[in-house]
């Protein structure tokens, strides 16, 4: 479904991605682990089109989208839940969700909205509240719900558990697991490598802008190198 070949990206003259090869197949949950500054967020941003690629190709369903604008990728079904939630604080929860369906015109969104509320009942309770007044966990649900409104075919999740209390981290991973059970294709980045590897079918380890290891989630979790560097064992 997603095929990345030799992708490079720069911040000014500083390379952030140095030739990334990554693949995500339909229905898979693929995790990306790595230290701070390894380029995990940059890779997701390059996939959603808000970060320019300086070389290499990104293919989605075989079509080259390396230079496609973010709104076109959303229309194709590549939807990112950004790091730090990034909800529209001055708008209501429901408006945030409706804007998630912006590319679909928003009108056909009623049924999707119901599904999102069914998945996150807390959002239904707070539908009229301003998004900025939600707790961190609720904002994460809102950010995920907003992405679901776009009916993503490939969901890019950037640090969904960052800054959340342990109980909420568990809850967020339960949601990720549920989305996977529904057959969604997910590309997940998380600091919490243990939890990410536990839910992932496959995973990549990123170091200074390069993929240094790849394997199944369980395989990487058992890898001594990974255990020492990322799992603190």
């Amino acid at each position: 479904m997603l095929e990345v070949r030799g992708l490079t990206s720069h911040y000014g003259r500083i390379p952030a991605l140095k030739g990334i090869d990554v693949e995500v197949r339909e229905g898979e949950l693929v995790a990306l682990v790595g230290a701070n500054g390894a380029g995990k967020t940059t890779l997701l941003r390059a996939l959603s089109g808000v970060q320019g690629a300086s070389g290499g190709t990104v293919r989605f369903d075989g079509a080259d989208i390396t230079r496609a604008a973010p709104d076109r990728r959303v229309a194709l079904g590549i939807v990112q839940v950004p790091e730090g939630r990034q909800v529209f604080a001055p708008l209501t929860v429901e408006d945030n969700l409706r804007l998630g369906a912006y590319r679909r015109g928003g009108e056909s969104a009623a049924a999707t909205l119901e599904r999102v509320y069914a998945m996150f009942p807390r959002l239904r309770e707070r539908r009229a509240s301003l998004a900025g007044t939600l707790s961190g966990g609720e904002q994460q649900m809102l950010a995920m719900g907003r992405a679901m409104m776009a009916q993503p075919r490939l969901l890019l999740l950037d640090e969904p558990s960052m800054g959340l209390a342990p109980r909420l981290v568990e809850e967020v991973f339960a949601y990720v697991h549920r989305l996977k059970e529904e057959g969604r294709t997910i590309f997940l980045v998380d600091q919490n490598a243990r939890a990410a590897l536990a839910v992932a079918d496959r995973a990549y380890v990123l170091e200074t802008g390069q993929v240094v290891l790849a394997g199944t989630g369980a395989g990487l979790a058992a890898d001594p190198q990974v255990q020492q560097a990322y799992l603190g064992l």
């Binding site: 089109g49 529209f88 998630g100 912006y102």
Partner: peptide, 23 residues
């Protein structure tokens, strides 16, 4: 209107607006 809210959203958070597909 959704277009009006999209304008507000884009002014508040440009990145998030781009990620939901607002031009």
């Amino acid at each position: 209107t959704l277009a009006g809210k999209a304008m507000l959203a884009a002014s508040h958070n440009r990145l998030a607006a781009e990620l939901v597909g607002i031009r």
